[in-house]
Design a protein around this nucleic acid. Structure first.
Lengths: 333, 333
DNA sequence: CGAATGTGTGCATAGCTATTCACTCGCCAG
DNA sequence: CTGGCGAGTGAATAGCTATGCACACATTCG
């Protein structure tokens, strides 16, 4: 019908209630000085018109939008879903809205930054590890606080929260050794993931500290298919490993599936397997996977703390320890 | 330092470049009439100051924010992740931003509606099936187009896209019968899910049409644990089913895990199993689950079409057929 | 050479709310 | 009776951009 309908404004309500616009504003501002009778009259008129205060003018003045942008790289991994859920809860608890931004790679630069700046988002949280210092600088220039997960960038406005990936890698080496592993293998994640790099380095360090030979290596992705491929590679040769640390759970599942299917090998009897992330699926019967729980709640809580920090306060990268959850996949005998 | 820093405005840039504010605006408006030299000068000044146009004033005038709110109920189910991903792509392709809203139940009313209205979101997409007509009316009053997935609500501003759950249920019955099933079981989802209800009704109808006895029934949730419980219930008695239709994949995985673990039964030899959603995991070795693919791309494409519809145009609920993907879990012999 | 067209720029304004300032009114204390 | 005070209200304004309008100047055509 009316091609250019506009939602009712405070002025409309004011007219309907026979008061001034400022009175309407006060009626919707908790703690403002307004007579009860006036307020009631205004609320009634507002209800009739279906009035909802427009938040934009306020944002325009204060430059605080109440919106936090969350950047993710994709949803294939349930770990992202868990992170998203945790952030969603934390933000909602603070009355903030979440703007979800999905980027193919962290070449975020293409326009997304402009958009975020344009909407005056209060902060940016990146579940995707930012690896490009360039992108970081871009964001930094906007004076928008940024928190990155499992990244190792630094900058005036960049704060970072990471799992203690290195320590976990070392712990994985120790556990596999204690459970009787003798020939070790590492199923790698993508090379551009700082978490992957740290986990591998920690694992290597752990093995070395125990005086063990370095691990065989395969893989290169965080998904099931990549883990499956890695398993085929590792077990095709004569010298088969008997203890595997996988960069994440999803890859570990791929490994286990292939071992059982193609090689008739089952953990923990034939091979020990450890993953990372402690997904729900890690408890499922076909897997019962020993894994590192990243304690997402703690990650998120820390991230929120860091967002509250003032201005360009320099701050150390926070590290959250991962908790080892042992299940059948490493319980031998 | 400066407690109340403000991002540079077009006026700041104008001052720096020695031009008027309107010139700056034109420099950033594609197709606006401005001399190349002037534009270059302005862009240089803007770059130096780190200026990004503020989108809010435009929104204030046009009431078009370029933001679409997506409502979800949780992330435990990878199906939500897939839906989210598809919507994210579709919205990005249209230059729209996505505001993610997570609600415990569809008692959305509590403040969220006010927020969405306040930000002047252009549309609302609900991946969570809205069941409360009350909530729908609330949203409708705001004259914000709403698209709901797998819901059966209707209203002036409410449009809906559903899988053909009923037809799929009937197809499941036929397939299980053709593959040799004789005693049928249905593993139910949550009672308040319209999709669950339609799938069950379709299944019952399909059995009846074939002259078969009605199915045994258990379950009541869309998650793994619920499926596991259902399997224990169904197979505890003497009269065990040999053909199961599960309300979704996650429940089906729970069923299969329990059957293999607790009862030493494996599909398809001992029991036929069908799921719904065709998750990635359905291809994994422990499951190889026959499932209905919801064709999320089509759902999302349809949803976007419906959003483009003008005003309160009355429109029929769209139905997208699900595609049956058969795997080992129903291939007998 | 005059007119007409076109290009480039500045001025002014709309859009909506929260808030400050000034004002009125009723009431109490001195 | 009057000064003061608190409560309640309205007018005015800031915040930033896009755009319609008017104007200045250059260019082209008859």
């Amino acid at each position: 019908m009316s091609g250019n309908w506009r939602p009712p404004s405070s002025t409309d309500v004011a007219r309907a209630a026979g008061v001034s616009q400022s009175a309407v504003s006060r009626a919707f501002t908790p703690g403002a000085r307004i007579a009860q009778a006036t307020r009631a009259k205004i609320l009634e008129a507002a209800e009739a018109l279906g009035y909802r205060p427009n938040l934009l003018p306020k944002i325009l003045q204060t430059n605080r939008s109440g919106i936090v942008a969350v950047v993710v790289g994709g949803f294939y991994n349930p770990y992202f879903a868990m992170t998203l859920e945790a952030f969603s809860k934390a933000l909602t608890a603070r009355g903030l809205q979440m703007m979800l931004v999905r980027v193919e790679s962290d070449r975020i630069l293409d326009g997304v930054v402009d958009q975020l700046a344009g909407y005056r988002v209060d902060a940016v949280v990146s579940a995707l590890a930012l690896t490009s210092q360039d992108a970081a600088d871009q964001l930094s220039k906007l004076r928008i606080p940024i928190v990155t997960l499992n990244s190792d960038l630094a900058g005036d406005w960049i704060r970072s929260v990471s799992s203690d990936n290195f320590a976990a890698g070392a712990a994985a080496a120790r556990l596999l050794y204690e459970r009787g592993g003798t020939r070790f293998g590492f199923v790698a994640g993508p090379a551009d993931s700082p978490a992957q790099v740290a986990r591998e380095a920690g694992f290597a360090h752990g093995l070395e500290a125990l005086g063990l030979p370095p691990a065989m290596r395969a893989g290169g992705g965080y998904d099931h298919a990549s883990g499956a491929r890695a398993a085929r590679d590792l077990f095709a040769g004569a010298e088969r490993p008997d203890a595997l640390f996988c960069a994440n759970d999803l890859a570990a599942f791929g490994v286990i599936d292939v071992l059982r299917e193609d090689f008739c090998l089952t953990p923990p009897g034939d091979v020990l397997v450890i993953g990372y992330d402690n997904l729900d699926m890690a408890q499922w019967a076909p897997y019962r996977l020993t894994s590192f729980d990243q304690d997402i709640e703690a990650h998120v809580a820390t991230a929120m703390e860091l967002l509250d920090l003032e201005a360009g306060a320099t701050c150390v990268a926070r590290v959250v320890p991962s908790r080892l959850v042992e299940r059948e996949s490493t319980r031998r005998g």
